[in-house]
């Protein structure tokens, strides 16, 4: 399959120094759903931020669709991020004074042109057709996260990056959100998702695990599925 992301010996060192990522090499084919797992502080968010062009690596290379991220200027990086990735966060990060549809339109506005009809459609796809005018404070956590997904999708990004998208949700809402991801995956989206939750991880095609910034294991979905479900019982 066509490879969309390639990481080459990627390292990120924060002042301290804290080695958050230590020479991680990885290739992600187009259309793959990859789960990033690992203990707290193992560097999952750091990795996702690098993929999301929110941060720059200390060393190593990120190639996304043939573009080497490290060589882009700040402005080019912003433009690249706008075109290429859709971001979904654990804490939702919606603009509190804007309604659901306006939050989605904001992403369109920074990308190109706000289009209310298109934004409403994006919300309809995540089941929020009747909540367009509500502000984040008037929505449940699950609904807020669906607004975030709609926002991440509205500009048709090549890659969806989600940092613990269900971390703040109860089981029922988790199921709704994961169904949406499943649907997106079936539609052919490339998804990189950080998660603690083995259930969630199991939905992915592949799981990678970080430990102290190092890539320690790569499981394919089949391998995990075949293995005894120890994680489930814990």
């Amino acid at each position: 399959m066509h490879e969309i992301i390639r990481l080459q010996s990627l390292s990120k060192v924060f002042p301290g120094p804290v080695v958050a990522l230590d020479r991680v090499s990885l290739a992600i084919p187009q259309g793959e759903w990859m789960a990033v797992m690992g203990a707290s502080g193992s560097g999952k968010s750091t990795l996702l931020n690098l993929l999301g062009c929110l941060d720059r690596p200390t060393e190593g290379q990120i190639l996304m669709g043939g573009t080497s991220i490290g060589e882009l200027t700040e402005a080019q990086l912003t433009g690249f991020r706008r075109e290429t990735v859709g971001l979904i966060f654990q804490q939702f990060h919606l603009v509190p004074y804007l309604s659901a549809v306006e939050n989605v339109m904001l992403a369109q506005y920074f990308h190109s042109l706000a289009d209310e009809a298109e934004a409403s459609e994006a919300l309809a796809r995540v089941g929020l057709a009747d909540r367009l005018r509500h502000r984040p404070a008037q929505l449940s956590g699950g609904e807020q996260q669906r607004v975030c997904i709609a926002r991440a999708l509205v500009n048709q990004p090549k890659i969806l990056l989600a940092d613990e998208p269900t971390g703040n949700l109860d089981e029922a809402n988790e199921r709704v959100v994961m169904d949406i991801f499943q649907q997106l995956h079936d539609d052919g989206h490339t998804i990189v998702m950080v998660t603690h939750d083995p259930h969630v991880g199991m939905l992915a095609d592949r799981r990678i695990e970080l430990e102290h910034g190092r890539l320690v294991t790569i499981h394919t979905h089949d391998l995990v599925a075949a293995a005894p479900r120890t994680a489930d019982q814990s």
């Binding site: 999301g52 706008r82 971001l87 990060h93 603009v95 920074f110 990308h111």
Partner: peptide
């Protein structure tokens, strides 16, 4: 801060 960070994350210059 968060709102600004978010706007930049979703592509604001």
């Amino acid at each position: 801060r968060r709102e600004i960070g978010l706007m930049k994350a979703i592509g604001a210059e």
